[in-house]
């Protein structure tokens, strides 16, 4: 039995517009999504903002009723057996909210343990264990309001493990964390993975998905557009190389010239403070560099490298990077 099965899931939001001439505006957040997650698998869900990742997670965690389609978690329908599903899952939505800031970390866990029906004698032992697991040992008596963002997000992990669920939904759990905090958080996820927990992870960080996921589904505009292992997804761009060009204030005209080159598959731009990194996907590899430099003539250019494509490059190609 698969831990999670999603069949043609769809969710439409309806919003009323206007005061006197009221009309209904429909927004399709999830159009048609199907996938399965095996027991013990870490399944990544990637997609741009508004692709439908969080909406999908909300439906699977019983917080949102689907407009159409069906889904089972641990073999139980998420609508008909919502309360049964809740006993078997844990979930985190990114960010630091969702905790009682005026209570201590331990008190938060104590309350959520009671909400999950955990026997007090069990939670008494489990809370210190979980606080240690997430690196908050010795901080349980402090008020959550005084915790750093990373500590709050780690407390969320402890909260979600209180009833020892087999299936975890982690929706952008490392968002807003500093690099050290994010790395520590990923170690916690790896630890959970080693405990054979089934994990559905959504993230914007491609390296994170690449490093952690057994399989990944890329969704865009509410539909799954690719689903494979990270290495399988990278094969989508195996014909490509990436020319990375460091520029300082490249003009729009120069970028247009670059986009117009016939061998440029796609061009994406990463802003890093005062400089931009131009990521040119091309089938010509290093041979493309002279033409790229010609297109950027007159611009201030720094380091130029040619590298193999990553999962991010595959993602950009699949979701249609600005070509």
């Amino acid at each position: 039995m698969n831990a999670i099965e999603v069949n043609h899931l769809r969710r439409v939001y309806r919003a009323q517009i206007g005061v006197f001439n009221r009309s209904i505006k429909e927004v399709v957040a999830v159009d048609d999504i199907s996938f399965e997650v095996k027991q013990g698998e870490l399944f990544g869900l990637l997609g741009p903002n508004g692709a439908g990742k969080t909406t999908t997670v909300k439906m699977l965690t019983t917080l949102l009723i689907p407009s159409a389609g069906s889904a089972t978690v641990a073999g139980v329908d998420v609508v008909k057996g919502a309360n049964e599903v809740r006993k078997k899952i844990g979930f985190i939505f990114g960010g630091e909210r969702g905790l009682y800031w005026r209570l201590s970390g331990d008190d938060n866990l104590r309350y959520f343990a009671s909400l999950y029906g955990v026997d007090p004698s069990v939670s008494k032992k489990r809370i210190p264990y979980l606080m240690e697991l997430v690196g908050l040992k010795g901080r349980g008596n402090e008020r959550v309001g005084g915790y750093s963002r990373g500590m709050k997000q780690r407390l969320h992990v402890a909260r979600t493990l209180l009833h020892d669920p087999d299936i975890l939904f982690l929706d952008e759990p490392t968002i807003g964390l500093d690099p050290v905090g994010a790395r520590e958080f990923r170690n916690v996820i790896l630890d959970l993975q080693s405990q054979k927990k089934t994990i559905l992870l959504t993230t914007h960080y491609m390296f994170e998905a690449d490093a952690l996921s057994d399989r990944i589904a890329i969704i865009n505009k509410g539909c799954v557009i690719a689903m494979d292992t990270p290495s399988g997804l990278k094969k989508h761009v195996s014909d490509l190389s990436v020319v990375e060009v460091e520029t300082f204030g490249a003009s729009e005209t120069a970028l247009e010239k670059l986009r117009a080159l016939p061998f440029v598959d796609s061009l994406s731009i990463e802003d890093r403070e005062q400089k931009q990194i131009l990521l040119v996907q091309t089938t010509r590899g290093a041979e493309a560099v002279p033409d790229v430099m010609t297109a950027l003539e007159g611009q201030r250019v720094g380091r130029v490298i040619v590298r193999e494509p990553t999962l991010e490059d595959a993602y950009v190609r699949l979701v249609g990077g600005a070509a």
Partner: peptide, 13 residues
């Protein structure tokens, strides 16, 4: 205000 409603309603309590 605390943003705990989703976590509260996501429990079987």
């Amino acid at each position: 205000d605390a943003g705990t409603l989703p976590y509260l309603f996501g429990t079987p309590a």
